[in-house]
């Protein structure tokens, strides 16, 4: 059984007003336990709306979201359960910090779960350690932290709930290369340690290609593509229609394919360079002969 099943969900914002807009149209897919999924799509494609459906923050106008086989909107209890089992970290979460201290902020989720205070404290410290937030900072105001530290503090607040499914909306937006790499290894480590399912939204095709095992492409509220990075990024035309472009490496190789060369799919610069070297060598040999 799939861990989550999204069954024909649709959703409109501004229902009954002149500004009514369909954010999701008849979206269906399944999520297996432990998957690592990247979600891409231009602004307004429905990515964030979809993410909020997965932890019951929004209720579909039609269709059903199942978590471990049960409708997450069945009753109040199932909604609560979804909120804790599916941890959602919003875009720019550092703007949502509100605790007087970092510790208070991180503890907010676990405390809401009704855990004993000792467990709350243990989880807070563990989460802080995990995101490499110095324990000395735990008693400081989150507003005293640097941008990168704030982001990690906010992520720690979600991790402290130990969600089975972790959703991050643009976790690397606005971070420099070092901060971005640190965030990616953090996400990978959480999955490695807990076996959790991880779903993340990104605007970077390079990150989507490098990190995900499966990619969902959203376009105008529909699920336009669903496949491995190689499957998705070989559909250059369709991606362009969705307002996206394959990562640079994929573009170089597909340009060469268009010139009649047998170029493989690759996303990492090293792999791409290997593929290009092979093509250049083969071409040289031919010219010499």
């Amino acid at each position: 059984m799939a861990q989550m099943r999204i069954d024909k969900i649709s959703y409109r914002y501004g229902h009954g007003t002149p500004f009514e807009i369909a954010a999701l149209r008849d979206v269906s897919f399944e999520i297996g336990e432990g998957e690592l999924i990247g979600v891409i799509g231009h602004t307004g494609s429905g990515k964030s709306t979809l993410m909020q459906m997965l932890n019951a923050l929004l209720k579909p106008d039609s269709g059903t979201v199942y978590l471990n086989g049960a409708d997450i909107h069945k009753d109040k209890t199932s909604v609560y359960r979804a909120r804790f089992q599916v941890g959602l970290c919003f875009q720019y979460p550092e703007y949502q910090l509100f605790g007087e201290t970092c510790a208070e902020d991180i503890a907010f989720g676990p405390r809401n779960m009704g855990l004993p205070e000792e467990e709350v404290k243990a989880r807070t410290e563990r989460a802080a350690d995990f995101v490499r937030l110095d324990r000395a900072l735990l008693q400081r105001s989150p507003f005293d932290l640097s941008g990168g530290q704030k982001r990690r503090c906010a992520v720690a607040g979600v991790l402290a709930m130990q969600p089975e499914i972790l959703i991050l909306d643009e976790p690397t937006a606005g971070l420099d290369p070092a901060g971005r790499d640190a965030m990616i290894s953090l996400i990978r480590a959480y999955r490695q340690n807990t076996g959790a399912t991880v779903i993340f939204v990104t605007h970077s095709m390079e990150i989507a290609a490098a990190v995900s095992e499966r990619i969902l492409v959203m376009d105008h509220g529909t699920l336009a593509l669903d496949g491995t990075p190689a499957e998705v990024f070989s559909q250059a035309e369709l991606l362009e229609k969705c307002g996206l472009a394959p990562p640079f490496s994929a573009r170089v190789l597909s340009a060469l394919r268009a010139r009649g060369y047998d170029a493989p799919d690759a996303f990492a610069p090293e792999e791409t360079a290997d593929a290009l070297c092979a093509l250049l060598r083969a071409e040289e040999k031919q010219t010499v002969c």
Partner: peptide
């Protein structure tokens, strides 16, 4: 400086390291 090459420059660098 905590930064990296742009994608195209990174690929150029990888190619040069491979003798291209």
């Amino acid at each position: 400086c905590g930064l990296e090459l742009p994608d195209a420059a990174k690929l150029c660098d990888c190619l040069r390291k491979r003798g291209v």
